[in-house]
Amino acid sequence: MTADTTETKARIARQFIQTIPHAEALGMEITQIGDGLAVITMPYDERLIGDPETGVVHGGAVSALMDTCGGAAVMSHPKSPAGTATINLRIDYMRGATPGQSITAKAECYHVTRSVAFVRATAYDEDESRPVATATGAFTVEGG
């Protein structure tokens, strides 16, 4: 694949993610995308709190971030022709994200067949040495 198509793919994936109403509602921003790798940041927001006593963000919001980031990674992969949908996603929660800190997910689409794309992802807060959650997922390859 030429550098041009890689860049086009990244641009399309970025545009697509930016038009997702729910990603926008959660304030998600793509900081890196291309070649099957995606990094998306979600700022801390009191509306996302799952435990009012501690202010820790709800696991469901982390799931939404992981799902979006996984989909973006698939779309940016050179062997993935167009759109994608999640087939399944497993998330392991290591710890609660520190209240007040943004959460960043890094997803890697590490294998693509004609029909399925395989993804692994990790979410961090500002302490990159201790992951908040990890995820693995399978996504559809559309239009292949």
Partner: peptide, 22 residues
């Protein structure tokens, strides 16, 4: 605001996941 795919439109997979987790 729950939409994930504006073309279909479809609910965001992350919302579905969060809904089931809740």
């Amino acid at each position: 605001q729950l939409i994930g795919n504006p073309m279909l439109p479809a609910i965001h997979g992350g919302v579905t996941a969060a809904f089931l987790e809740v």
